[in-house]
Design a protein around this nucleic acid. Structure first.
Lengths: 213, 213
DNA sequence: CAGAAAATTCAACAATCATTGAATTTCATT
DNA sequence: AATGAAATTCAATGATTGTTGAATTTTCTG
């Protein structure tokens, strides 16, 4: 019987996830990870080889789960749609809603993970390679669906629109507190539901404006 | 007569700008900066106090220029507009076009600077504070203009729309190479003109969809 | 319980880090 | 040319970094 145990290996991943999300790869020391996880310094290297291995393991852990959830959401909205296929709104909703389902239910780990992905996505060192490695197959599937919903779109326009979506999503989940300061409390970065409800129509309108001909 | 000299202090700023943009604050050592600038290690500390002072100096140097250029563009589009004030498109264009004017003319420094700002903007450590420090007054001026162009908008909606704009802008100027890989060359991250021409209508459509009631 | 394997700890390594005080050079002004 | 200030170099500091091999403990397996 596998008990409900939180072993050291998972404690290390959780600590590294939270720390990398806030301070970046180079901003976190192996000692700080060990200290936060309440674990010996050498244990992280033993389990993950080296610091880079730990970073990759953190990224990989939830990527698979997230990709499956998003694919399931896309399949569901496809089957619910008529023979014309799902609308742009429905596709974008399938892309965004899983983030909310995971992150909103007081699961700190998922929130840290989204912060980390946000930082990775806009980093020169990691953005091009790691995002491609972990998320490209999924994104291509969504792009196919969007092409069907916008049959007359120029491919380059479609990619740029997705890029803008990715940017808006990235900054929103980065949780930098910027919108709180700028709006002086009128808009709150913790209000992920509000962000989600606004991002879907905002992005959908942009897609249609550029790609619906 | 002030000669056209590129002194060591500027060489340090240029080197730090390029390195911080690519590898982040903690990913760059003072030694690497000195080496890249072809300057003694101790000189950076002498001129800027410490590493953090160097980072701030890099950010500040172009922030003032950029803010002035953007304000001038906003003033111009205001005076060109009728008594109803400028349109949403015109305001967003005034916000984005200066980036192109600076960065496109083979000025490597500006391109590095935009990459750096992109990274700062989506970083937890710096995003909330530094962006506020250097760009908030300017952004508030643009928000005022947007409020006039969208008089029935809910303030929270307006702030979220700007946040999405900021995210799209940030990722685009981060130059991670992601769109190149995802699109397999159909869309190129170096094509800043193409990105700009698409971002304006994309974002404007989103603003109108959420804030035009 | 015996023995093997995995997990964890301990102690230390060499390398690199940012910073600084003193010495030296360059520069501008007289 | 003399003088004082600014700029630059040199050399060293103590602290922190990631990694590792050996020793120890825990867990698993027969």
């Amino acid at each position: 019987m596998t008990m409900n145990k939180l072993k050291r290996k998972d404690r290390i991943l959780d600590a590294a996830e939270a720390l990398f999300a806030k301070y970046g790869f180079e901003g976190v020391s192996m000692r700080k990870v060990a200290e936060t996880a309440d674990v010996d310094l050498a244990l992280s290297s033993y389990h993950f080889g080296n610091k880079r291995g730990l970073f990759d393991a953190v990224l990989l852990r939830r990527a698979e789960v997230l990709n499956e959830t998003r694919l399931a959401a896309l399949d569901r909205c496809k089957s619910e749609a008529g023979e014309g296929g799902p609308t742009v709104e429905a596709i974008i909703n399938a892309f965004l809603e899983p983030l909310l389902a995971h992150g909103y239910q007081e699961d700190e780990g998922w929130l840290h993970y989204f912060e980390l992905v946000a930082q990775v996505n806009s980093s020169f060192e990691w953005g091009g390679q790691l995002m491609t490695k972990y998320f490209d197959p999924l994104v291509r599937t969504f792009m196919e669906a969007l092409k069907k919903a916008l049959p007359n779109a120029d491919p380059a326009d479609l990619y740029w629109c997705y890029h803008f979506l990715s940017g808006a999503l990235t900054l929103t989940f980065a949780h930098t507190g910027r919108i709180d300061q700028l709006s002086e409390g009128v808009a709150k970065s913790e209000d992920m539901v509000g962000a989600y409800q606004r991002m879907v129509p905002f992005v959908a309108a942009g897609f249609k404006r550029l790609c619906d001909k």
